[in-house]
Amino acid sequence: MAIIDRYKLQPSPLITIDGREEETNNFQLQAAPPAEEGNISGTVRRPDGTVIPFATVKLFNANGVPFEHNNSNPAGQFIFPRVPAGSYFITAAEPGFLTPLRATVTVLANRTTSVSITMQVDPDANKNAIFGIVQTSTNNQPIEDVTVELFRVTGTTTEMIGTVSTNNEGQYLFANLVNGNYFVAASKPGFLSNESTPTTVSDRDFAPVNMILAADPDANTGTISGIITDAANGQAIANAIVALYSVSNGIENIIDITKTNGGGLYLFGDLLAGIYRVKATLQVES
């Protein structure tokens, strides 16, 4: 049977006795309102039964809204006193362990409900993370939707581990990384790509690697490309001379000359807005 207060604990005034006196002090007790509260207590343990001290134990109401949190003591024990009667969910968290599914617990008025929480060891507890923010070089503004690639360097071998994109605050994250040496590369159209210096992580390191991207000065330019072929047989012509002309008021001026590659392809880049023409020929020495 649970012990409860029928009346509130009421102190008397201070009573002074000087020698052989008979003091009387009558006073009244106020009835305690009926309690519709109970307690939740329990222990947080590993699967082998050993306790987990200082784990964060969190209580949610029946709608999943956080109600209160507490920590287990050195013996793994916790208590939530004076919880209004009703249904709740409870779980726990501690670095190195997986958070269990929330368990249902019912609180009865004037009763203590016991709960045992078992936490599984996180198999990735000692793995590492690399995170950071990608910003502009001019005003340090975050850049959204940057492609960030992670590479691991082992001796003379470089291996790409993964690719993520920055969020609207320019942030990225790579988690669950084994010990080793890493670097990241960031790129986005309109910016010059960049690589970080290598960083070494081991035994649960969370390493910040921030990146700066400079605007590409040629970002607002175009290209002209094509394939030169023999009109008789459709074969690609390698080493054809291709001239690029700018056209202004009907006047053509050569501004660049290139040659086709082995597949007959030519390419002119970094072209400003304007009107152009290309002309091609194949010249040989006789």
Rank of each mutant, 00 (worst) to 15 (best):
residue 249 N to Y: 02
residue 249 N to V: 04
residue 21 E to S: 10
residue 127 K to I: 00
residue 130 I to Y: 00
residue 151 F to Q: 05
residue 75 A to P: 00
residue 19 G to I: 07
residue 179 N to T: 15
residue 43 T to D: 03
residue 13 P to F: 09
residue 286 S to K: 10
residue 47 P to R: 09
residue 76 G to T: 04
residue 98 L to Q: 13
residue 230 D to K: 14
residue 80 F to W: 03
residue 18 D to W: 00
residue 212 I to K: 10
residue 141 Q to R: 14
residue 206 F to P: 01
residue 81 P to S: 02
residue 120 Q to H: 04
residue 277 R to G: 08
residue 91 T to Q: 00
residue 153 V to I: 14
residue 148 V to P: 00
residue 35 A to F: 07
residue 264 G to V: 04
residue 231 A to Q: 11
residue 149 E to C: 02
residue 107 V to I: 00
residue 11 P to N: 12
residue 143 I to L: 09
residue 1 M to L: 11
residue 176 N to S: 15
residue 59 L to T: 02
residue 141 Q to I: 11
residue 49 G to L: 03
residue 89 F to P: 03
residue 26 N to P: 01
residue 239 N to T: 12
residue 100 P to Y: 11
residue 209 V to D: 08
residue 71 N to G: 03
residue 147 T to N: 07
residue 272 L to S: 14
residue 121 V to I: 10
residue 118 T to C: 01
residue 50 T to H: 12
residue 225 S to N: 12
residue 102 R to V: 10
residue 32 A to P: 02
residue 71 N to P: 02
residue 211 M to C: 13
residue 256 D to A: 15
residue 8 K to D: 15
residue 164 V to L: 07
residue 109 A to Q: 00
residue 140 N to D: 12
residue 36 E to W: 08
residue 63 N to Q: 14
residue 276 Y to I: 00
residue 261 N to Y: 11
residue 128 N to F: 00
residue 138 T to M: 05
residue 151 F to T: 13
residue 48 D to N: 14
residue 246 S to K: 12
residue 41 S to N: 09
residue 277 R to L: 04
residue 25 N to G: 06
residue 32 A to N: 04
residue 272 L to G: 15
residue 92 A to M: 08
residue 132 G to C: 01
residue 183 F to I: 05
residue 12 S to H: 06
residue 201 V to D: 08
residue 34 P to M: 12
residue 167 N to C: 10
residue 251 I to C: 09
residue 117 I to C: 01
residue 275 I to L: 11
residue 137 S to M: 03
residue 171 Q to F: 09
residue 205 D to K: 06
residue 102 R to E: 15
residue 257 I to Y: 08
residue 41 S to C: 05
residue 134 V to D: 06
residue 267 L to R: 11
residue 221 T to E: 15
residue 137 S to N: 10
residue 39 N to H: 04
residue 1 M to P: 09
residue 202 S to P: 06
residue 106 T to C: 01
residue 224 I to R: 05
residue 40 I to P: 00
residue 283 Q to G: 14
residue 286 S to R: 12
residue 266 Y to Q: 07
residue 159 E to V: 06
residue 120 Q to C: 00
residue 280 A to R: 01
residue 114 S to F: 00
residue 182 Y to E: 07
residue 22 E to S: 11
residue 95 P to R: 02
residue 157 T to P: 05
residue 150 L to E: 03
